[in-house]
Design a protein around this nucleic acid. Sequence first.
DNA 1: TTGTAGGCTTGTCGCCGACAA
DNA 2: TTGTCGGCGACAAGCCTACAA
Lengths: 367, 367
Amino acid sequence: MNLSPSAAAGGGLPDQPASPEVSEEHKCLNSELWHACAGPLVSLPAVGSRVLYFPQGHSEQVSASTNKEMESQIPNYPNLPAQLICQLHNVTMHADAETDEVYAQMTLQPLSPQELKDPFLPAELGNASKQPTNYFCKTLTASDTSTHGGFSVPRRAAEKVFPPLDFTQQPPAQELMAKDLHGNEWKFRHIFRGQPKRHLLTTGWSIFISAKRLVAGDSVLFIWNDNNQLLLGIRRANRSQTVMPSSVLSSDSMHIGLLAAAAHAASTNSRFTIFYNPRASPSEFVIPLAKYVKAVYHTRISVGMRFRMLFETEESSVRRYMGTITGISDLDPARWPNSHWRSVKLDGMSQLLERGNQGCLYGRLSL
Amino acid sequence: MNLSPSAAAGGGLPDQPASPEVSEEHKCLNSELWHACAGPLVSLPAVGSRVLYFPQGHSEQVSASTNKEMESQIPNYPNLPAQLICQLHNVTMHADAETDEVYAQMTLQPLSPQELKDPFLPAELGNASKQPTNYFCKTLTASDTSTHGGFSVPRRAAEKVFPPLDFTQQPPAQELMAKDLHGNEWKFRHIFRGQPKRHLLTTGWSIFISAKRLVAGDSVLFIWNDNNQLLLGIRRANRSQTVMPSSVLSSDSMHIGLLAAAAHAASTNSRFTIFYNPRASPSEFVIPLAKYVKAVYHTRISVGMRFRMLFETEESSVRRYMGTITGISDLDPARWPNSHWRSVKLDGMSQLLERGNQGCLYGRLSL
DNA sequence: TTGTAGGCTTGTCGCCGACAA
DNA sequence: TTGTCGGCGACAAGCCTACAA
């Protein structure tokens, strides 16, 4: 019997579907878990609503993923404006089969001048991403990922999201089953022992760690949902970006492809498809139109204005920071004249701006 | 100290460079090993020569890699002909850092009508890929890849490519060092033992197998080159295509990107960059111009004509098959009128045509 | 409360020849 | 000639408590 390293670990390994990409297409991902993995700041516009699509932001996602800047020889697309008002026909949530990276596929259709005159529908502000209530997220320590032991569950976390243990047993222990994004089930022994007493996941843990190739610094996320199911997600640390295998298409062609696809769709008012990868992309590039209109026309952004901005903490909760806008400029005025995809200078926040540092104002700032 | 599974295996593991993608750029890959991994049928046109670039074939490479056919909403590029005569400015050989997949990067520049009038240079037929002489390639068995043992070296192979053992020792054994495509060194114990006697690689073998994630059916390839160095390459089995993570860009955009990049380069006579991935691509799409001219103008392909075609055997040698052409048609006459990227019907060869079944005539057929 | 070190048990890796295809 | 099996020893994975931050 021959087994690959990860499959060999496999006593507790779930069966892999025969053709992952096919079942991937049709399986409906658990939305709750997807949003938890994407993080509290990521929301997806509602299907049917009108959105603004920024090719420049989309381009930044490709740059961030391929680790290559766009080069000079990019053709001009005179018919492609810096932002495109679109109808959002479809949104589906996905997870990469290899890495569990979450991403969304969206079908957009640029609106004709006629359609642009339609009044707003009330739903267009987009429903905020509902984060689950019964969940916890922990960044893995060296001990958690070493081959030498199991997973140390923070006490409050275990009490909040795991089913209660039967403390009449000695030691108290139970078996936990958790489903990941692909619907695969993972089995863990949950035990409460040691001096002082603590919650641990032992048997099954190292199989999970090695199958998902998790290392110290990555995070795991447990959710106890309303159907009394345990869900299990992961978030990898931002380790020098996943180098996307570009052995098939140059990154230049990718940039051109995204621009040409948008330009073509704009000129023919036809549908096009994009992928939004919230943890790879520096910022959101598909924004609810209503949110944008509110920010631009009702609250003009200007130097000196006070703002607040949301950030994600290590434990996946949200923190607010206040600041003042000290400068505004277009990032690439030659290529994208009058783009609202602007770079904003803020006071004293440089250390916070790891992700989203050139993020679209309308996605993250509140005024 | 925390280590990922493969790194943890690491007693004999070579040091990983600090920033693999950067050193990758500047390191010169071993050409001999690259060609051996690419296979005996793959040749690269000479730098400076004139070549024919087929966007349609390039598109097929993307389809094969993403497992997605091109969809309907592709814009037209009226200025993009089915084939583009280009100057080949640069060719570099690469290997994917994750998978060791070999690919080539080429810089092409469409020729102006003026330049097209230049006479051929003698070198333009392209030098055939020189396959190394002292090498062997073996498809791994279940035993070779199991955690239970080492690698059984075919007798003739060991005698041909490994340094001779000292048979006065009991048992005869030596240490072998082999360099892979990235220049990393792997250390193996080569021993001649058992009843009956055989050549085995033991210590170091399973570290290599698990680091490269090889499974039964994949192949390994040892070369003893003229500098008395041992080189080591791998060829993965065609297992339902490597599903390329496309969580960043839709495959439609990739197709459009390649077409738009070529169209833009054609209209401005400027350089563009493509990747040719010989084992992912169904066929060659950059062909020496001289080869093409010879095939089209000197030997018109027609129904009834006898031909021979080269194929690769499991052991990486070349086998010839003879046949008769029974039909010729353009694959996609609507999109590519008068393309020479044709589909040829052949007699009784269906079972042979796993790869290259829609391959460019001029690359693989000899008349 | 929770991370890491260290002891102890046990499972698996990996080297070996036997045997048969 | 070479693929797979059963054997067996070495060693590391993995469960446990102690201790300290």
